[in-house]
Design a protein around this nucleic acid. Sequence first.
DNA 1: CGGCTTTGACCAGCGC
DNA 2: GCGCTGGTCAAAGCCG
Length: 602
Amino acid sequence: MASGGLGLSIDSDPNSSFLYHKQIEFSTLFLNTTTPKTSSGNLYSHKMDTTNNKNKNKNKNKSPFQVNHEISHQPFDHEMRPIINELDFFSQNNNHHNHSSASASASTSTPPSLNLHHHHINDHYTDPSLLEFKVNTSLNLLTTNTSNDQSMMEEDIASDSEDKRAKLELVVLQAELERMKVENHQLRNMLDEGNRKYNTLQMHWMSMVQDKKVEDCNEEQKQVMGGKLDEEKQNGNGGVLVPRQFMELGLPANHSDAIDEPRSQDQSKSLANNNEEGSKDEELVLDHDKKESDRGNERNGSPADRVLAANNNNNVANFSPQTNVEQAEATMRKARVSVRARSEANMINDGCQWRKYGQKMAKGNPCPRAYYRCTMALGCPVRKQVQRCAEDKTILITTYEGHHIHALPPAAMEMVQTTSSAARMLLSGPMTSADGLMNPNYLTRAILPYSSSIATISASAPFPTVTLDLTQSPNQNQFPNNHSNQFQFPFPQNFLPQVFGQTLLNQSKFSGLQMSQDAANSSQQTPQNLADTVNAIAADPNFTAALAAAITSIIGAAQPNNNNGTSNNGNGTIANNSNGNVTSSNNTNGSPKINNPNSSVE
DNA sequence: CGGCTTTGACCAGCGC
DNA sequence: GCGCTGGTCAAAGCCG
Ligand SMILES: [Zn+2]
């Protein structure tokens, strides 16, 4: 609506913004005025005369050079009118040369004096003296009230033209404002794009470095406990399926795949940072015995527990020196995936068969919490808790824990993929180093693209938990108070991620499920190792801190407001609405299948 | 009768 | 040590 709307083609270049145009003109102007006796300097003086009487009067009393110099600086201060004149001038020139139609419209609406001057300038462009003379003449005509009718008419025309110009300027400014907005938006997009690419490269680099480090660690571990590894392999091959799984869980050395490397690195890193390595190892062993083995030894009632006990005993007997493995195992078994979904039914149909083994009244929730155990395979250690949300009883919260030892039906796969995507995004998502180091209850958040799911991950010990919220739209503002902590972040595809991915739920063990994000690593890694590593990673504050530091270094520049070191709550949230780099295969539709089991949660 | 649910009891962890 | 809470067990009962 701006250019040409009033018959004047102010901006000859529709793609360029007004301000940019102005700046370019300014630079040209300044350069010209710094050079004495240049024709362009007089040109500006002349242009001022045509539009500004005050300047025109001033110009009369000054030498051409002074006038030119003074006026040339006015646009730099605040006055926009000279700028437009200048633009107008050049646009007319451009129009003359490039756009005959536009120049025609401009000439029709331009006062005769303007055209006259313009032509004079063009005609005598190379003669400063003549030009100056013309300028003075023009001044007299416009500013002095002579009895010349023609001068009166020109004055009226000039006043009319000023009104038009004022309107035109307003319109032009508005248009330019719009252009600026659009351009600003485009620049932002470019910046985001650049940041995203940079992040991806950074993540890739980190993963490569990490892999290399962990390979070294694995080699060392193999040298230390080579015999035990063979023993472990024998158990895994000849034993029952269930024990083998747990052996895999706790035995990264069995698989020198890259997936084990992050954990080893993390732990080696943590150990290196800890001066009390020996005592820490002992604590880890004891803790593991207490938490896992003792339970199994004392409770041999259920087959699952017997399996747990057997595995724990094996692990302890075989790998008590290998605290890394045990720590990872203990951590992994505690990793959880929580799914929130609206359901009138009492349980989400996740494709598995469950047997209820307990029910308790949870604190702060009038609805009881039901405990289920997977019965699809004998000894499957997977358990889940089902509970209705206290605030909204239509929301069913299902929390999974453990890893299936059997193939899963398609219905379960959907849940797996959805949750995996969420976990992958969350793990690969950013967090500040401060969050990772200072806040044990680190929480991040992601909005799954192409789905109405919002996922959060809490790395709080001892249960790293991924929460997939299927009840809300990503558009909803769930954390109005945390906008300052939210920023876009693209998820790298090849970082650890694919990892967590399969993981916490790990429903895909032995199922041959391929993550959509099949990086070369994932194809080489066993799902169990993925799960193992992911859980260890999620629970390892050192790793999360390192990851956070790296990511923060990237994001910090783009998001200065992101408080790296001043996060004062443990729930600093990070929102991701990136829809670019996450190749999520999840087809979540926000309405998981519901069945009507006999069990009752309420 | 087998599988499942119900439900009270038990245990461990944690904070005071 | 005590109480609270979460998690689990297992006997009893229900159901197809
Ligand atoms: Zn299972």
